[in-house]
């Protein structure tokens, strides 16, 4: 299973803090997982998750490019950070 988390504006716009996605080879990389979420979630999810400024993290590390995923990974989608 992949644990997918959403934060801040992304969480609010999707109306959901996260989803668990059953593990299979069709979600074995980040881009494929994102495509699956967009397909299952519909046009709203597609619009929100495909924003150009979306930040993606795998196991709590930000990744700039597509990357392989393993069963049990934690994936997060969030907007640019604004702390401090």
């Amino acid at each position: 299973m992949l644990r997918v988390l959403f934060f801040a504006r992304v969480k609010e716009e999707l109306g959901c803090p996260g989803v668990d996605v059953p593990w299979d080879n069709a979600v074995a990389d980040l881009d494929s997982l994102q495509a699956r979420l967009c397909r299952d979630g519909g046009p709203r999810w597609q619009e929100v998750l495909n924003r150009t400024n979306m930040i993606r993290a795998v196991n709590q590390c930000v990744v700039a490019e597509n990357t392989g995923l393993n069963d049990g990974d934690e994936v997060a989608f969030f907007p640019p950070v604004t702390g401090g």
């Binding site: 801040a8 950070v81 604004t82 702390g83 401090g84």
Partner: peptide
């Protein structure tokens, strides 16, 4: 911290 730490202000 301002650029990397995952905090968001509303």
């Amino acid at each position: 911290l301002k650029n990397e730490a995952p905090f968001w202000k509303k």
